[in-house]
Amino acid sequence: MCGGSRFLDVGPEYNPGLVSLIPRLICAGGSLSGQLFQAMRQSIIDGASDTAAELAQQALAIGVDPLEAVNQGFAAGITFAGDQFGCGQMFLPDLLASAEAMKAAINILEPEMLKRGSQREALGKIILGTARGDIHDIGKNLVATILSASGFQIFDLGTSVTPEEFVAKAKEVDADIVGISALLTTTMAGQKAVIEALDRNGLRPRVKAIIGGAAVTQKWAAEIGADGYSRNAIDALELAKNLMSKVMNKGTAQA
């Protein structure tokens, strides 16, 4: 995905005016779904929330399965955006706009998915918060946005969260992963406290603990026994996916 082309430069089939063309495409009996899914993907890449919402509405109006719209249309955009970010073609504001557009589309499609009982299955349940004493949440918010847009169910506990609060929420929602963020070197000890509390309460190894923050390193993660660490929100997505595959495998093995 890291070719020389700019992320805005997509195939010739894309037409920004597609939304208004949809009824005519239907009448003409054209290959609608391909075009529509392509437009959905592009609306996410463009970070165009209004267009994404409009396309979602159009899809419902013409009877496209909402789950298919997500999986084949919008989600492809998020994957593309993540890849482009990974190779330095897209930047954090682009990525956030893509995530927001994704949210706009899902908001439209969700009621119909619920009605059909075809709700998009969450990739996993993740609890996020910043360590006690740390009110810096920009990194944690980015991770929440990206993971949520990618299909994880996020429970964001906000800032300066105590180990007890992490544990209580993890039990309450039967979380798969707990993510603890700390910007300050002085609050990084709070990450360790959360991991210890998860251990004390017998939640690990079933619940995975991941950490992040400007001063956090792989070494620190190993030292405090975290299951993973990531440098940025996109790496956090990969990390969460990898950990979920371990959780799933384990579940299967135990079953």
């Binding site: 504001p93 990194g139 400007a214 940025n232």
Partner: peptide
């Protein structure tokens, strides 16, 4: 400034 690739300073 806020680094738009890494989120760092």
């Amino acid at each position: 400034i806020f680094d738009m690739r890494t989120g760092g300073a």
